[in-house]
Amino acid sequence: FTQGQDEAFFEWLTHDKGYARRLTRFGEIINPKGIRTIGEFPNLTQALLDHGLSEPVVRKIMGGNWVRILKEVWGE
Score class of each variant (00 low, 15 high):
76 E>T: 11
66 W>D: 07
34 G>K: 04
26 F>C: 08
69 I>H: 12
36 R>N: 12
63 G>W: 10
67 V>F: 15
67 V>Q: 15
57 V>M: 12
34 G>V: 01
37 T>E: 09
4 G>C: 07
57 V>T: 14
43 N>K: 01
22 R>I: 12
31 N>G: 02
71 K>V: 11
6 D>H: 05
30 I>F: 04
43 N>V: 02
35 I>H: 00
50 D>Q: 07
70 L>P: 02
25 R>C: 04
75 G>A: 00
34 G>M: 09
46 Q>G: 01
41 F>S: 02
42 P>F: 01
70 L>Q: 08
73 V>H: 05
16 D>E: 14
63 G>F: 10
70 L>M: 13
7 E>Q: 09
68 R>Q: 15
18 G>V: 14
29 I>E: 09
40 E>W: 12
9 F>R: 04
7 E>M: 08
18 G>F: 12
49 L>N: 00
48 L>D: 01
6 D>R: 07
24 T>K: 11
60 K>V: 02
64 G>Y: 03
24 T>E: 13
27 G>I: 08
54 S>W: 03
33 K>N: 09
14 T>V: 12
26 F>G: 06
22 R>D: 08
41 F>V: 07
31 N>Y: 04
43 N>W: 01
25 R>L: 05
29 I>K: 06
59 R>G: 00
23 L>S: 06
13 L>S: 08
75 G>Y: 01
42 P>C: 00
2 T>L: 15
4 G>D: 05
24 T>L: 13
9 F>I: 12
58 V>E: 01
66 W>N: 08
72 E>Y: 03
37 T>Q: 07
74 W>P: 00
35 I>Y: 00
67 V>G: 10
38 I>Y: 09
68 R>P: 06
6 D>W: 05
51 H>M: 05
32 P>I: 09
72 E>V: 03
48 L>R: 07
71 K>D: 13
74 W>D: 02
43 N>L: 01
41 F>R: 02
31 N>R: 04
17 K>L: 04
32 P>N: 12
